[in-house]
Design a protein around this nucleic acid. Structure first.
Lengths: 345, 345
DNA sequence: ACCTTGTATTCTCACGTTGTAGTAGCTGTA
DNA sequence: TACAGCTACTACAACGTGAGAATACAAGGT
């Protein structure tokens, strides 16, 4: 394979056409396969393409087709490990199909989310993948431009867009059941939000309740300290409140891993040993969960699959291969059992 | 502000030109500021631009200028938190100046690194930011295409490209000195590589030696267990070897945070309390370092600044505002003191 | 031999932008 | 008045591609 030196210009359709002795459009037809080309011609062109190492000029193609090949990806909290890890997967999945991704951070602000969902956040984007937090159905219906949109996460914003999300109720139920199976009986939950619970909080609480009900255990409101947000400090302070109760819990289900890591730290500071004195489980399976001390039992969504599905959905809409109503896609999850919830092994 | 509904086409230079009663090129000149435009005209055009909400069509501009607005960013180990965090900053910095970033993972393979550094890794990229691991000077000189290139990290590959990196020797020296100041005397180092040390290992070892020498302490080769790579398990197994020594170290300087987190875990498993029985410090200040139990003292490069400088350098080369020999840019660092190295507070 | 039908290929143009070359209009000087 | 020299603007072409219309050609039916 010979690589052209220094300033060698990239070969164009025209160069290939001259070498193969056909017109530019015929080469274009061979490359794109839009129009049938006679076998002999196709072969001759293909040889010329290979010989010159021709690669289509993406920019020119985009100008011609009117698409930019860029999509926006928006999360409420990009520095959060779960979103960051998911973002990496979305970028990788998009790249595999020749799409580049612009990242946005909405801060969970409904107005910002609406802007993004309307395609007004970045110039020249073909579609949007959004993980909404504050946005509601009415606002989403009111958007001024209908750009292809895929939603990630728990919030049900109606049939306007496709949605990819795992079954949060089931995930919460399974991991709570795991705690029950391990013999824990007084199980607290960290992650409830009091004035205005998000969909996440509602669904994970529902799963937790179901598991308790299945086991015939009562729901003690004292074991549901509300939090402001879902970061480590929120988990830590909720944990400290739980530890001040007259009758302490023997296990805690945290609605995400950051809360769990904060809770872990608070437990550690209080001199408790996890899981001997207290079990802690999380949700999301962020990378750090595997390396925490002790390592954290958690609900693990398949982030790669979620990303793959979201990108594929969006692509179908952009290329208008699918134009129907919003689809709901629910990939599975696993409960990953680690040290923080297993007493005797 | 009125937003055009549904299928409203984006305004073009031509639309602005018609509204303002000038030629298309004049609008272009106003928008780009390349050629001076009379004040009255400029104002009229600007009003038309605002009224229509004109935004330049990036794709067309790129086709015309021959640039793609895309750069490649390549790391040896993308899932590593340090690289991932730096990547996020590079992406953000690039975006601020309208550049999008394609990520590559070289695995540290010299051939892959050479491909990337020659601009052959991705089609149509304007420049490359590369964190080399296996690449050497000779290989870099031999690259077949001279695409604008900025190197990140310790390796000195000659004046072919710009280079952004912190002073590793100083960082290692400072953090070792911190351990000495805290009263630790038998200080081990984890991160040396025996058959073929990388530049990172050499420079961080050099700083460690300097600090010991300054304190008049000998260098005990037993306290330098070599590692294969820079991940948690390597740190853990090196730590276990150190703990089997007849005379145990009372502190460990790990050449990156992952090694330190692994070492922390091994120490924990051996029943040692950090920092009472053993101090541990790292290098890189990955996010997890702040949340480890105990939180980790480490050398913190300013990742945002590094990213900013790298992107700015590369942009200057792409736009040919700078065409001289490779520059060396050395932003500062901080030693962030946390729990893992402070005995009595 | 002529027309029809169909397939394979070419021609022409447009996407929105910017660089180059050129023109109009003004000012100042001979 | 004529003209050089300047500024401010315009006209045109080109970047590489893809869509659609137009054309060449071959085969088959009458």
């Amino acid at each position: 394979m010979s690589v052209p030196g220094g300033g060698a210009a990239a070969p164009r359709l025209k160069d290939v056409a001259e070498l193969a002795g056909v017109s530019v459009k015929t080469v274009s037809n061979v490359v794109n396969g839009t129009v049938p080309v006679a076998e002999a011609t196709r072969e001759r062109v293909q040889r010329a393409v290979d010989e010159l190492g021709y690669q289509p000029n993406v920019t020119a193609r985009r100008l011609r087709t009117g698409r930019s090949g860029v999509i926006a990806l928006a999360f409420p909290e990009l520095p959060s490990p779960y979103f960051a890890e998911l973002a990496v997967e979305v970028i990788a999945a998009a790249r595999r199909v020749g799409i580049t991704v612009l990242m946005d951070d909405t801060g969970g602000d409904p107005a910002a989310e609406l802007r993004i969902a309307s395609g007004l956040g970045d110039p020249m984007i073909d579609g949007v993948i959004l993980s909404p937090l504050g946005l509601d159905r009415a606002a989403l219906l009111s958007r001024s431009r209908e750009i292809p949109l895929v939603l990630l996460g728990e919030a049900d914003l109606g049939p306007v867009a496709d949605r990819v999300h795992i079954d949060n109720v089931a995930g919460a139920r399974e991991v709570t059941r795991h705690l029950l199976d391990e013999g824990y009986r007084r199980i607290a939950a960290i992650g409830w939000q009091d004035p205005a619970p998000r969909a996440t909080a509602e669904q994970r609480l529902a799963g937790y309740r179901e598991a308790l009900a299945d086991a015939g255990l009562p729901l003690d409101p004292e074991l549901l300290p509300p939090v402001r947000a879902y970061f480590r400090p929120d988990g830590a302070s909720a944990m400290r409140r739980l530890l001040r109760l007259p009758e302490r819990p023997d296990a805690v289900f945290c609605f995400n891993d950051l809360l769990a890591l904060g809770a872990l730290r608070a437990a550690h500071e209080a001199g408790l040993r996890v899981p001997r004195d207290l079990a802690i489980v999380g949700f999301d399976d962020v990378e750090e969960a595997a390396y925490a001390i002790p390592s954290l039992t958690t609900v693990a969504p398949d982030k790669r699959l979620i990303a793959e599905l979201a990108v594929r959905c969006l692509e179908e809409r952009i290329e208008r291969r699918y134009t129907g109503p919003g689809r709901r896609i629910t990939p599975g999850f696993r409960v990953v059992v680690r040290e923080s919830s297993t007493l005797a092994r």
